[in-house]
Computed example of a mutant assay.
Amino acid sequence: MSDASVPKDRRFPIGLTIATLVAFVILCGLGVWQLKRLAWKQDLLARIEVLKTAPARPLATVLAGKGDASWTRVSVTCAPGQAETLPLVYGVRDGDIVWRATAICRTSAAGYGAILLDLGVVKALTGQPTPAPLALAAPTQAVGVLMAPKSLGGDRAATVARFAADKPAPYILMVESATPAPAGITPAPLPAEISNRHLEYALTWFGLAVTLLFIYAAMLWRKMRS
């Protein structure tokens, strides 16, 4: 029997099948991506848990090592310097607009000549939409957690680029404590909260993929049976 002799409503729905397969692949891909994010997040949470009791290591020692140094607690001594005006970094903490202060710490560590410090939240600027910039000098001593700029909000990478002549380290030091402590600034090195719902999201995407197949099968069955 030729295709021309088959009624239109009984023909195999090639277009619908292709569309269903494309949507199914996309949904499964999103589910797999969420599983990868789950593994990454679990590793991150484990590193943070270890970080809570880890001693601070010298910055030079950490930077001289191999691999990613993110989420490592370090200590650094900064050379005396004048206060410099650097951009404040916008953020949201506990539902409020906050502004984080930064300073450049010039030091000698594993071939690098400086590292950008995130000193913490400027308490007086909480809730302000457009605060005036602050001029701050780096503390003499600082202890904090190393973070990659790309993992942080705000254009810290642009600030680091301003000090290219100093060969800045490719990390931001999120300060936990500083000597002397900068007035009016509250250290906030770690995120206020880190959610981990990637398994839930993965199951949702896979569930939608399976549901799509059932809907397609039901439509195909009705079409071929009618």
Rank of each mutant, 00 (worst) to 15 (best):
D3R: 12
D3H: 11
A4L: 13
P7W: 08
R11S: 05
F12M: 10
T17V: 09
L21H: 05
V22N: 07
L27F: 13
W33S: 05
W40D: 13
W40G: 01
K41A: 09
L44T: 12
L44C: 00
L44G: 01
A46M: 04
R47F: 02
R47H: 13
L51E: 01
L51P: 04
T53Y: 03
A54N: 05
P55Y: 05
L59C: 08
V62T: 12
K66L: 09
K66V: 05
G67S: 10
D68L: 02
W71P: 00
R73C: 06
R73A: 06
V74Q: 11
T77L: 03
A79K: 15
P80H: 12
P80A: 11
E84Y: 02
E84R: 01
L86G: 08
L86D: 00
G91H: 07
V92F: 08
V92P: 01
R93V: 10
T102C: 07
T102A: 08
S108L: 04
S108K: 14
A110L: 04
L117P: 05
D118P: 08
G120L: 01
V122D: 07
V122Y: 04
A124F: 04
T130H: 14
P131C: 06
A132H: 02
P133L: 06
A135G: 11
A137C: 07
A137V: 05
T140L: 10
Q141V: 04
Q141S: 12
V145K: 10
V145S: 10
V145R: 11
K150H: 12
T159F: 00
V160H: 08
V160K: 06
R162F: 00
F163K: 02
A164F: 04
D166E: 13
A169V: 08
M174R: 15
M174W: 01
V175F: 12
S177A: 13
S177H: 06
A178K: 00
A178R: 03
T179Q: 15
P180W: 09
A183E: 12
G184P: 08
A188H: 13
E193I: 03
I194F: 09
I194T: 14
N196E: 13
N196V: 06
Y201I: 06
A202W: 11
L203K: 06
L203E: 10
L203N: 09
G207W: 12
A209T: 07
V210E: 00
F214M: 10
F214K: 04
Y216K: 00
A217D: 05
W221N: 10
R222Y: 07
R222V: 02
R225C: 03
R225N: 12
